[in-house]
Design a protein around this nucleic acid. Structure first.
Length: 466
DNA sequence: TGAAATGTTGGGGCG
DNA sequence: ACGCCCCAACATTTC
């Protein structure tokens, strides 16, 4: 059974031991060299780097300190390892992103040159997205059709597997995790440490908590940002600290109401759909899917962009969202839609600038989901929101944060303002503002743009390109 | 996974 | 009692 040879297990976006197909394959061999390679040429946002740092530390503990970490170019490092340790096989789980697939290709040709066997697996998506074509050979461009196809024609996702019991990990002279310099010097990340615990064990605990207390009523409650009703699994999923197949099956088998389960499973499939679209349109992060949007004349304005990024737009629900992002590394899903709509359709700023900011600030920054969702909001995407769907930040606040709890949490300078005026402070009577200690333009900004005017500008702009 | 503009209806105030 | 007007409240259409 076990053969006396070293195999390389290349950890990538699969920082876990359970349901890790590459690890299961590697565990059939006598000596396993587990490696992680940090390539500074890859784009990583500041928040993601912090998460990755913590996640690698966690994985290293799980592997009893045997995780080998390197910095640099993957092909060079692996070639050196093959020579140095006489490895005969390399196993990894695929990362379904264009840049990462290029690495696979170069590794495959290196392996051929060196007569090393390579095996790669899918441990990050529910299905093999290569196989999900329409009967006419094309690919699905409408989410609902994709979902219906999966539910009617494709079976349940594969059952998740346990971690192998005994693996003989070996240690090479690699660098220390802190030498990857993933943590920013200004310690911006410190605030995350009180909120998040990256790693496989924490991921499983989060899933348990979600099942125990948040899945019930998920369908309705997930819309309200002050309710703590979302799964909070996105970062764990991004880094592969938990298996999406495992999440699927435990949710499916739980005794929560069917509606709640289905709504959540649909969210997992949105993630799947994003990867699927990225596969078919590798420029999803940089190019408009609808090329007519190439002609849209964005009014990219650095000052307005800064106000948006800092959460000082004068629209409380927007500012609360942007500050939540900065302080916690995540933003409630509904608020993401509202702030994105505002950037694109009221500030008339290119969605790519918003997407970039999100990638930098989100601990769950994910190229596929982020790009797909931004294009969805902008209207340039595949199964996109209609261009005329423009969120009114005042109405959205009243509807989904009716008591103003979310706004007051992240925009504390407004916390004494009566709820009635909280969503549009510029309409509050002077006396009320005074009582609440709010001085518009001083303690809290006046709106940086007029919603109705900019809404109409956006509509005109969209009309021009359609 | 909107919102605003426009259209329609029906009850109540009022001459 | 009747018609007229006003305007919520709701429905439809338009962006």
């Amino acid at each position: 059974m076990a053969q006396d040879q070293s195999v390389i297990l290349w950890f990538r976006r699969d920082l876990r031991t359970s349901d890790n197909l590459a690890l299961l394959e590697a565990s059939k061999y006598h000596k396993v060299l587990p490696i992680y390679i940090y390539n500074p040429k890859d784009f990583f946002g500041g928040a993601s780097k912090w998460w990755l740092h913590k996640s690698l530390e966690s994985l290293d503990r799980t592997l009893q300190g045997k995780l080998n970490v390197y910095v640099g170019d993957e092909e060079t490092i692996i070639e050196d390892l093959i020579k140095k340790l006489k490895c005969s096989k390399i196993f990894w789980n695929k990362v379904y992103e264009p840049n990462e697939e290029i690495k696979d290709q170069s590794l495959l040709s290196l392996a051929q040159k060196r007569s090393v066997e390579c095996k790669s697996f899918n441990s990050s998506l529910l299905w093999n997205i290569e196989d999900l074509n329409k009967s006419d050979g094309g690919y699905y461009k409408v989410y609902t059709a994709f979902w219906n196809f999966l539910r009617s024609k494709i079976g349940e996702p594969r059952i998740d597997l346990d971690a192998p019991k005994h693996v003989n990990y070996i240690k090479d002279s690699a660098v220390a995790i802190k030498d990857l310099k993933l943590l920013s010097i200004n310690k911006w990340y410190l605030k995350f440490e009180k909120i998040w615990t990256p790693g496989e064990m924490a991921a499983n605990q989060m899933l348990k908590k979600f099942l125990a207390s948040r899945l019930n009523g998920y369908d309705e409650k997930r819309n309200y940002p002050d309710l703590d009703s979302t799964s909070k699994l996105s970062s764990y999923l991004h880094f592969g600290e938990i298996s999406v197949n495992k999440i699927w099956h435990v949710v499916n088998e739980s005794n929560a109401p069917k509606k709640d389960k289905e709504t959540f499973l649909k969210e997992l499939v949105w993630r799947e759909f994003s990867y699927y679209l990225l596969k078919h349109f590798p420029n999803l992060s940089s190019n408009n899917y609808q090329s007519k949007f190439d002609k849209f004349s964005w009014k990219n304005n650095d000052v307005l962009l800064k106000f948006w990024q800092k959460g000082i737009t004068g629209y409380p629900i927007i500012d609360a969202g942007m500050r939540e992002l900065w302080q916690t590394g995540v933003m409630h899903n509904r608020i993401r839609m509202i702030v994105a709509s505002f950037l694109v359709k009221n500030l008339l700023i290119d969605w790519r600038l918003g997407a970039q900011w999100f990638l930098d600030c989100l601990v769950d920054a994910d190229l596929a989901s982020n790009s797909n969702n931004w294009q969805w909001v902008a209207g340039s995407g595949v199964d996109h929101a209609p261009y005329f769907r423009i969120f009114n930040p005042v109405l959205q606040g009243q509807k989904f944060d009716s008591e103003g709890k979310y706004i007051k949490k992240f925009v504390p300078e407004l916390k004494r303002l009566p709820t009635k005026y909280l969503f549009a402070p510029w309409l509050a009577p002077e006396a009320e503002l005074f009582k609440a200690g709010v001085v518009l333009g001083d303690t809290y900004p006046k709106p940086i743009v007029d919603f109705l005017i900019t809404r109409n500008l956006a509509l005109q702009g969209y009309k021009k390109i359609s």
